[in-house]
Amino acid sequence: MAEPTGATALGTPADDTVPRRTSPRGYWTNVAKRLRRDKLTLFFALLLALVFLSAIFAPWLAPADPYATSMLKRLTPIGTPGYPLGADELGRDMLTRLLYGGRLSLLMGILPVVNATVAGCILGLIAGFFGGRVNMAIMRAMDVFYAFPSVLLAIAIAGALGAGVVNTIVSLTVVFIPPITRITESVTTRIRKQDFVEAARATGAGNLSLIRVHVLGNVLAPVLIYASSLVSISIILAAGLSFLGLGATPPEPEWGLMLNTLRDAIFVSPWVAVVPGVMIFITSMSFNMLSDGLRHAMDVRM
């Protein structure tokens, strides 16, 4: 678990000489300095930025219409003039669909983690801060969700709700709430027992301001780092649900769904069929590397 940022001097011995109140700014300067030196993380951050930009600006970048089919161009191989990445099983331009596909794939991968972070943080703060029975009730409920392998829980909920982008986001959100709640709860419980919280309470601070000023600041770093490590899994799972026919619905361009519909073509035009997976791989890998780099730079241990 992370050291509470407000209560420790971080890193270099020089920190001991500066007054305590400037230490938060010193911390973020240190983080930025460490990140600048970490070339590998910067490379993957750049790669991720490119993926995002290509998805956002898809309508301006794409050479063709993502929905325009052409029976003549079905499964055109990679490198054909006019079709740099080939064409899919309905003759749609692969490059165009990859660019557009990033929009849904990124949304379906990232939004569940964002939702779950907000919900899990609130639940974890309540459980950790108030302890006792409230803690019991919330954490035991989370234990039940922990009793499912995450893939299975996502498939169970999405399978019952049926296909659709919203249903995928809902089911993945449910999957990620318990781990985030657990992390938040354990950090909050530890912070709550520290002297500086007790001191603040003694000076008359109410529960809300205690949470906002003293607990949240210390909880946020480890929780955000942990949440960032979930994005990679979320991207793979969201595309995986589409791959099973549970996420995005045809003819929407989405990487997992594209893999699914191209699966039958692997004996005809194998290398066109694997192209969407490259995008899922690059995105998930970048998020993993970025999360690792951030954890290192922020000196957060779990």
Partner: peptide, 10 residues
């Protein structure tokens, strides 16, 4: 841990 395993299978 980053590779989509269904894609690796393909």
């Amino acid at each position: 841990v980053s590779v989509p395993h269904y894609w690796l299978g393909m």
